[in-house]
């Protein structure tokens, strides 16, 4: 695990990764274990939800607000806002620790003095982030697959995989914002602020766009629009959405490479 910067970065992130995976598995298990009782009273619940003002429904439940089917339940309770938050928060924390973490810890100059090279350092750190966030996506997928099966409400493995691919890419795209900002200025906090700010702004934009016709045309500016919005589960994968998420990430990686190449390293 000490062969190169990529392997070392994976090793460094193992512990946080395990914690997040356990958290996800626990929450998914909890949620699905109470589903049978919720489904039992789904009719009442649905009636209550329908009585809520549309704006409240959209803001807190997404357009679905649907508890009657497993897909609707998982979408509403998990994938509409909690899962994006998990993926974004995880990716942002990993990204902030990547380049800026080493720099603030003072180990970056040591790596660079040992013939790593700036471009290689950025690429290794970015590759490690991709792998780690993808592992969280796989863990999430597996947890949902197992939990829905145990709860007797199976959702197709393929359907789940599509939703989690979207969310993983969403996390990576917002994580890339953090990666670029913290890599360009060498400060963890700046990167976290940027990533969190972008994440919240885009979530709000996407949600408000569902309620307000005036904002609707600007929906395309939100990354959530491309990750399936409030109901990632059960939508067909669209090539444009995936391309946008991947494109944004790639562009931000490129920006990082250019900016990191140009600046002074704090020694």
């Amino acid at each position: 695990m000490l062969r190169n910067v990529f392997c070392k970065s994976l090793r460094d992130q193992t512990r946080p990764l395990v914690m997040w995976v356990l958290g996800v598995a626990f929450y998914v298990a909890l949620l699905l274990s109470i589903y049978p009782s919720i489904r039992h009273s789904a009719g009442q619940l649905q009636g209550y939800i329908s009585s809520l003002p549309a704006a409240v429904r959209a803001a807190f439940l997404g357009p679905g607000g649907d508890f009657s089917s497993p897909v609707g339940y998982v979408n509403t309770e998990l994938l509409s806002w909690l899962a994006p938050v998990v993926f974004i928060a995880f990716a942002v924390s990993i990204a902030a620790r990547s380049v800026a973490g080493e720099e603030e810890d003072g180990t970056l100059s040591l790596l660079l003095a040992h013939t790593v090279g700036r471009r290689r350092l950025v690429l290794h750190k970015y590759a490690a982030m991709i792998v780690i966030v993808t592992i969280l996506g796989l863990a999430f997928w597996l947890a949902l697959l197992v939990a829905t099966a145990i709860a007797g409400t199976p959702v197709g493995a393929g359907t789940l995989a599509e939703a989690l691919l979207r969310l993983t890419l969403l996390g990576l795209a917002v994580g890339s914002v953090t990666f670029a900002v913290s890599g360009a200025c060498g400060r963890r906090q700046a990167g976290i602020a940027a990533g969190a700010g972008v994440g919240v702004a885009m979530y709000l934009l996407n949600t408000l766009a569902q309620m307000n016709a005036d904002i609707r045309p600007f929906r395309f500016l939100s990354l959530f629009h491309y990750s399936g919005g409030a109901a990632p589960l059960g939508q067909d994968l669209d090539a444009v959405g995936l391309a946008v998420l991947l494109g944004v990430s790639a562009a931000l990686l490129l920006v990082t490479l250019v900016l990191f190449e140009r600046r002074d390293i704090r020694v």
Partner: peptide
Amino acid sequence: SGYLPGELSL
């Protein structure tokens, strides 16, 4: 070259 920084962080 070999480099020992003034403030060494490991």
